[in-house]
C-alpha cells in the first residue's frame, strides 16, 4: 500500500483544526487559564502521540513516559542553572540524553526478549527509580525545588524560555505536535511502521518473516524517548522549577490512557482523547476543588479516567477513533459530500 498523500481530505480537516488552534491564542489572550489548559492538552497530546509509536503500533505497553520527561526537564534546567545554556539548545541535549538512556536500557531489554508484562514493569519501575535517584542526588535534584532563572521582558526572557504568558509555550507545543504528527504519518506507512504494526499482533510470526523485531522496537523506543525528552525540557520551563516529583507515575499512566482511549495506531487518536480527557480533568479540578480538599480531588478524576480506560478496554478495544470516524462518515453522507 502506498503512503497516502499528506494532503487528503482527512488531513485537510486536521489542518482546519490546526488553523483554528493557531488563531485561538489571539482570542484567548486575556484568559491565561484557558491558555494554560490548551497548552496542557497539547503537551499530553504530544506525549500520547509519541507513545502511539511504541505502544499503539508496536504493542509494547511502555509506562515510562515520565522518566524521559523528567530527564529532559532536569537536563535542560540544570544546564540553564549551572552553565547558563539556553533551553532552546538544552532541550535537545536533554532529549538526546533521554534517548541515550532509553537506548542503553532498550538494547539488552529487547535483546534478551523482555516483553509483555515484564517490559511494562521495567518501564514503570524506571520512573520510580529515577525519582529515587534524583531525590538522593543533591547536586542536581534533592527534595527542595530548584527554581529556574526568570526574566519578564525582552530578549532575555526568550533566551531563558520563560514568559509571562502561556502563548509562546502554546505555540512550541503546537509545533511539536505537528512534528510528531508528521513523524507518525511517515512511520505508519513505511516499512518500519508495517513491521511495528505486525509486531503488535504477533511477534513470532514477524520474526519468521525475517523482520528484526529487536531493531524495530528499539527504533520505536528511541523516537518516543527523544520526543518525551524534548517535551520535558519545555515542561520544566513552563513550571519554572525542577523537582523529583516530575518523575510521576500518574503522568506515565495518563499518557498510556490517552494513547489507548484515543485508539492504538491511529495518528490523530491521542489528540482527540487529550482534548476530551485533559480538559475534563481540568474542569473537575476547577469546579470541584472546594468539595474535595486535599488529595481527594486527584483521586476523583483518576477514578473517572480509570473507569473510561476499563470501559474502552472491555468494549471498544480499538479506541474512540473508529467511533468518531464513523460519525464523520455519516455526517459526510448526510451533507451529501463524496
Amino acid at each position: 500500500m502506498k503512503r497516502p498523500k499528506l494532503l487528503n481530505s482527512k488531513n485537510i480537516a486536521i489542518l482546519v483544526v490546526l488553523a483554528i488552534a493557531i488563531v485561538l491564542p489571539l482570542f484567548l489572550r486575556t484568559n491565561q487559564y484557558v491558555l494554560f489548559l490548551a497548552t496542557t492538552v497539547l503537551l499530553y497530546a504530544v506525549l500520547a502521540s509519541a507513545w502511539n509509536i511504541i505502544g499503539g503500533m508496536a504493542g509494547q505497553l511502555d509506562l515510562g513516559a515520565a522518566a524521559y520527561v523528567g530527564l529532559g526537564a532536569f537536563t535542560t534546567g540544570t544546564l540553564l542553572i549551572r552553565f547558563n545554556l539556553t533551553p532552546w539548545v538544552g532541550m535537545f541535549i536533554g532529549a538526546l540524553l533521554a534517548m541515550g538512556i532509553a537506548t542503553l536500557i532498550g538494547i539488552p531489554l529487547f535483546g534478551f526478549k523482555v516483553k509483555e508484562v515484564w517490559y511494562a514493569l521495567s518501564s514503570s519501575a524506571l520512573v520510580e527509580v529515577f525519582r529515587a535517584i534524583f531525590m538522593m542526588w543533591n547536586k542536581v535534584g534533592g527534595p527542595t525545588e530548584r527554581y529556574l532563572p526568570f526574566s519578564a521582558e525582552g530578549p532575555r526572557s526568550w533566551y531563558l524560555m520563560r514568559f509571562n504568558t502561556y502563548v509562546p509555550y502554546f505555540y512550541i507545543m503546537l509545533a511539536l505536535l505537528v512534528v510528531v504528527f508528521i513523524i507518525n504519518h511517515r512511520i505508519r506507512y513505511s516499512k518500519l511502521g508495517y513491521s511495528l504494526l505486525a509486531l503488535g499482533e504477533d511477534e513470532d510470526a514477524v520474526e519468521v518473516l525475517g523482520v528484526d523485531s529487536r531493531l524495530c522496537k528499539l527504533k520505536a523506543l528511541m523516537i518516543y524517548s527523544f520526543v518525551a525528552g524534548l517535551v520535558g525540557g519545555v515542561y520544566g520551563c513552563i513550571y519554572g522549577y525542577l523537582h523529583p516529583s516530575f518523575f510521576s507515575t500518574d503522568m506515565s499512566l495518563e499518557v498510556v490512557i490517552l494513547g489507548i482511549v484515543g485508539g492504538m495506531g491511529v495518528t490523530y487518536g491521542p489528540l482527540l482523547a487529550a482534548i476530551f480527557l485533559v480538559s475534563f480533568r481540568e474542569y473537575l479540578r476547577a469546579s470541584l476543588s472546594g468539595m474535595f480538599p486535599g488529595k481527594g480531588l486527584e483521586g476523583l478524576y483518576l477514578m473517572v479516567y480509570a473507569l473510561i480506560l476499563i470501559v474502552v478496554a472491555l468494549f471498544q478495544p480499538r479506541g474512540i477513533a473508529p467511533l468518531i470516524k464513523r460519525g464523520f462518515l455519516k455526517l459526510k453522507s448526510f451533507v451529501g459530500v463524496k
Partner: peptide, 19 residues
C-alpha cells in the same frame, strides 16, 4: 495490551478510591 490496560485501569481505580 488490552488485557494489561484493563488491569492498569483497575490499579488506578483502586488507588483513586483510596485517595
Amino acid at each position: 495490551v488490552v488485557q494489561l490496560a484493563a488491569t492498569v485501569g483497575l490499579q488506578i481505580m483502586m488507588r483513586a478510591a483510596a485517595l
